[in-house]
Design a protein around this nucleic acid. Structure first.
Length: 417
DNA sequence: TCTGGGGTCCTAGGACCC
DNA sequence: TCTGGGGTCCTAGGACCC
């Protein structure tokens, strides 16, 4: 098998959250199912057939499909199902690159002799996922990552599609531009103004023209994809670069508080604004705590704290702050987030805040490295080092052995909270 | 279409350094 | 006092993906 063969699989679970619900509750099988409340997180194919779409407002979804069964999301169940499916992926091939909770690329190029053709492997993978995890999955097979993903996309649900190397453009060019990876609502509209609606038309356009329309990176990228030029190999799942948590300030109470807080002149405005700011701070603290815990659990730390805000008109703003060192300490991150929010509070109040988010970027692979102003390996200074750490973290549990055992010279990993 | 929660990548200006 | 060229980092915004 050479590199010119179709050996990349893109495996994508069908209507993932909805399928997990149907697997776990037989009454939902074969019926229109919507997962989510205020917004559709996922829906089964009978609901899709009625026009329900992911990210659609709940009210509109129920209008389109009144007989749909609406179930609240169970994220833990989806996480567990995802782990089980990825286990099947890794039984299939060691080279698995996860893209999201429900999809991955698999390189099966070296497996001809052991497991047969990529098509056979894909077919077995689909059966294994169904048998072992109970979920339907669609697989696309092609020579490039991009095309494998397109192939699975057009074959959903419960499908398998192999694109042979000599049929690539024949398969690709009639498809709508929206199938290109990186073409969303805005780009699609811009291209539609120029009467460009198919991948084939993009391919005819020439790189320079595309760059002048869409900018350097995007233009080059789309030009390459339209010709199925995508040299990226399948790699094992990269470590994430960012970790965040956010919370929509929905509900009547928030709306009322927010309105009252930004209405000047009325009696009692000061206290209302204070209550609003106080509740906001509690939300912020909760978000930071969540992110910090996840960071510590993953043994990661980060330097940049980003505050994300969304307003009543759906516009957004971000504020960020980069710290001197990476950290996963709740208090350090919270102090930074609070500073950002305080600076943005007048704007947020005026524009009607509807969402707060916190992200930690600039992640490093290691837990926080605490710089000590001395060498803990020089015996004379060890007790001073211990005292300093104990004082800083208010702990008495830290032993000399622990400190030395880290074997990290002048730095040591952060202690858990 | 009146909207959740989690991510990725690109652009662009300004500060700062040599 | 006014002037080059090159680089990195930080911040903010925006498009896109599932």
């Amino acid at each position: 098998v050479g590199s010119g063969d179709a050996t990349i699989l893109h495996a994508d679970l069908d209507a993932f959250y909805a399928s997990v619900e149907q697997r776990d509750d037989p009454r939902l099988r074969g019926r229109p199912v919507i997962v989510g409340g205020g917004v559709v997180l996922a829906c089964s194919y009978p609901a899709k057939a009625r026009g329900v779409r992911t990210a659609m407002g709940g009210r509109q979804a129920r209008q389109l499909c009144p007989e749909a069964i609406v179930v609240p999301p169970r994220m833990e169940a989806y996480t567990a199902a995802s782990r089980a499916v990825f286990e099947v992926f890794r039984q299939t091939t060691p080279l698995v690159e996860g893209l999201s909770i429900d999809e991955a690329f698999l390189e099966v190029g070296g497996l001809w002799r052991i497991r047969g053709s990529p098509e056979r492997i894909a077919d077995k993978l689909r059966r294994d996922v169904l048998d072992q995890v109970g979920l339907p999955i669609t697989v696309g097979v092609a020579r490039t990552k991009f095309l494998a993903k397109v192939a699975s996309g057009v074959s959903k649900p419960d499908g398998l599609r192999v694109v042979p190397p000599d049929r690539e453009l024949e398969f690709l060019h009639p498809l709508p531009v929206g199938r290109l990876w990186g073409v969303g609502r805005v780009t699609e509209a811009r291209l539609a103004e120029l009467r460009i609606t198919t991948v084939g038309q993009v391919a005819e356009l020439g790189e320079a023209a595309l760059v002048s329309i869409l900018g350097l990176a995007n233009g080059r990228h789309l030009h390459a994809l339209a010709h199925n030029r995508d040299p990226r190999p399948v790699k094992n799942t990269p470590r994430r670069h960012s970790m965040g948590a956010q919370h929509a300030l929905g509900g009547r109470r928030w709306a009322a508080l927010s309105t009252a807080a930004r209405t000047p002149g009325a009696g009692g405005v000061e206290p209302v604004a204070a209550v609003w700011a106080g509740e906001l701070d509690a939300v912020l603290a909760g978000l930071v705590e969540r992110v910090a815990r996840r960071l510590r659990k993953a043994g990661r730390s980060g330097r940049t704290v980003t505050l994300r805000l969304r307003f009543g008109d759906f516009s957004r703003a971000t504020r960020s702050r980069t710290l001197p060192h990476a950290t996963a300490r709740t208090q350090t991150l919270l102090d930074a987030a609070r500073g950002l929010l305080a600076a943005a509070l007048p704007t947020a109040t005026k524009r009607g805040l509807t969402l707060v988010g916190v992200a930690v970027d600039n992640l490093s692979d290691a837990p926080e490295q605490l710089e000590l102003p001395f060498d803990p390996f020089r015996d004379a200074q060890l007790d001073a080092a211990l005292d300093a750490v104990r004082e800083k973290y208010g702990t008495t549990a830290l032993s000399r052995a622990t400190l030395l055992g880290r074997d990290t010279g002048l730095v040591m990993p952060m202690l858990p909270d």
